[in-house]
Computed example of a mutant assay.
Amino acid sequence: MFRYIWQYLFTSFLRFWLKWFLRQITGKCELQRICNGYRQGAPRTSRTEYSLESSKSKTLKASISVEENQVEECVLTIMKEKKVVPQKDPTFKMSLQVCLLQITGYKRLYTSVEDLRKEPFDCENNRHENMLLKLWDLLVPSVKLESRITKQWGDIGFQGDDPKTDFRGMGMLGLTNLLFFSEKYTDVARQVLSHSVHPKLGYSYAIVGINLTEMAYSLLKSGALKPHFYNTVSQSPKLEDFHQLYCYLAYEFDKFWIEEKPESIMEFNRYREKFHDKMKDLLEEPDVSLCMTVDCKL
């Protein structure tokens, strides 16, 4: 209770006077102090985002939602409002611009991911069908599908004869992630698939992959992935950056599963949550960067 009272008092009253006092002492606004005092990446961008969200200025509040092509003009407007003289602080404009590109880009990335998640798999759509068939060809190129609807789909971890039913929760996002991993890291994806058919430590490759898509999506939606993207993408994160994050999860979960040695696939939910907690702990580190480092033995 005391923490909430303190937070309310600080944000409502004390923060304003603290900012005013520091401006008088340093001659710089809060945004300048952040851009000058913290390194580029999550430490700087996260604090900039909080500063803008907490501002009483409508201009500053609105800046976190502008379009990408409006960022530079928005920065100039902020500089004018905060009376920042470019000659006295020549690096501020570019630093704030990078922060805004990352902040607004994260919001647009979530919208793009959500749109893909809401797009259902349509077997009448040739693009969707071709993506599914390409996934098979990339993972098991030496085996030909007997037909479009077949028990063979179980060989790569789908539940039934027609994979379309497994995409209901994550829509085309699930298939896009699986296909991206197989295209970008074909040898790794095949190696992970081979682990999934292990007689004791096996798991359903495609179903687990779609489950990891849900994990990546939930982390994105909650904002937990902000430190990762702020540290690894210098400007606006794109869909490909999200797919790369998925590849990291798919690769790391496979290693995690093998190292943990579960008694059976019936323990999947428990180990899934354990892995999820591990990722959330990593994402709390200020220098976090969840990038794939492929074992050279693969």
Rank of each mutant, 00 (worst) to 15 (best):
I34L: 01
V288R: 00
K82G: 05
E81S: 06
K82H: 06
P286W: 09
M1P: 01
R272N: 10
R148A: 13
R47H: 04
K184V: 01
Q152I: 05
D161V: 11
H198R: 02
V85A: 14
M279V: 10
S142I: 03
D166R: 05
L249S: 00
K274R: 14
S63M: 15
L52Q: 15
V192A: 00
L76K: 03
S182V: 06
E285K: 15
F253D: 11
P199A: 08
M279E: 13
E72V: 10
E260R: 09
R47A: 05
F275H: 06
K19H: 13
K221T: 03
F253R: 09
E67A: 09
M292H: 08
D241E: 07
E260V: 10
T104G: 10
R108T: 15
E260Y: 14
I156T: 04
F180M: 05
D277C: 07
S222L: 00
K61S: 14
A250S: 15
M170V: 08
V98D: 15
K278L: 13
S222H: 09
V233Q: 03
M79A: 01
L133E: 15
D287Q: 13
G157Y: 06
E129Y: 11
Y185L: 10
L18M: 09
L178Q: 15
D166P: 09
H243M: 04
C296I: 06
S289Q: 11
S289E: 07
G174S: 15
N125P: 02
K274W: 10
G223M: 07
F268E: 14
Q24S: 06
K58T: 14
T213H: 09
S95W: 04
E240I: 01
K280C: 01
P262K: 07
I78S: 01
T213V: 12
N211A: 11
C123S: 14
K118W: 13
F21Q: 10
K93F: 11
S55A: 13
L145D: 09
M94V: 04
V98M: 12
R117A: 06
S112Y: 10
P141D: 08
D137F: 00
E252F: 09
L225G: 08
M170S: 12
S196L: 00
S147A: 14
T11H: 07
P262H: 05
T77V: 00
F92E: 11
E183T: 01
Q32T: 07
R168I: 15
C291Y: 11
F268T: 14
K82D: 08
E263V: 08
M170A: 06
G37R: 01
I207K: 02
T91V: 14
S234W: 06
E124T: 08
R33D: 00
G171Q: 08
E67M: 14
K184C: 03
L139K: 04
V66P: 06
T186V: 08
S194E: 12
